[in-house]
């Protein structure tokens, strides 16, 4: 199994919900989202791919955006989570909990079986 490819697929699968989770704690602009995802554990395959993800979240009605111009700073497009986005995030949390629990169970059991051999 190609671990890098598996990791990339995992990141692709969870990046959207992770962005929703970031936005749940407050508005962010693109570069901030990228930095926070990086800090959490390099959750993007590359930085620029955040924008197609944001577009998808926006098309789904889970994220909105607006321009903000602060004195002395460059204008930035800020992203916010919508109520529908919060619902989606909560659904994902439940699903993720079940999923990781199932995978953990399987991985631990498999590891124990190998150690008994």
């Amino acid at each position: 199994m190609n671990t890098d490819a598996t990791a990339a697929q995992l990141r692709r699968g969870v990046a959207g919900p992770c962005i929703l989770a970031l936005l749940e704690s407050g508005s962010r602009y693109g570069l901030e989202i990228v930095k926070d995802l990086d800090a959490a554990g390099q959750l993007l395959t590359s930085q620029g791919t955040v924008y197609p993800l944001l577009n998808r979240l926006s098309e789904a009605g889970w994220v909105t955006s607006r321009w903000e111009v602060a004195d002395g700073e460059r204008p930035r497009r800020y992203y916010d989570i919508t109520p529908a986005g919060r619902d989606e995030l909560n659904s994902f949390r439940d699903e993720w909990s079940r999923f990781t629990s199932a995978v953990d169970t399987l991985l631990v059991r498999s590891e124990k079986e190998i150690s008994h051999v």
């Binding site: 490819a5 395959t45 590359s46 930085q47 620029g48 924008y51 197609p52 993800l53």
Partner: peptide, 23 residues
């Protein structure tokens, strides 16, 4: 390089399944 090539971003945009072979 960290930002990713246009091809990589386009692949994400078009929901391509394949990881670009190299940056």
């Amino acid at each position: 390089i960290e930002f990713g090539t246009p091809e990589e971003i386009l692949a994400q945009e078009t929901r391509a399944e394949q990881e670009p072979k190299s940056r």
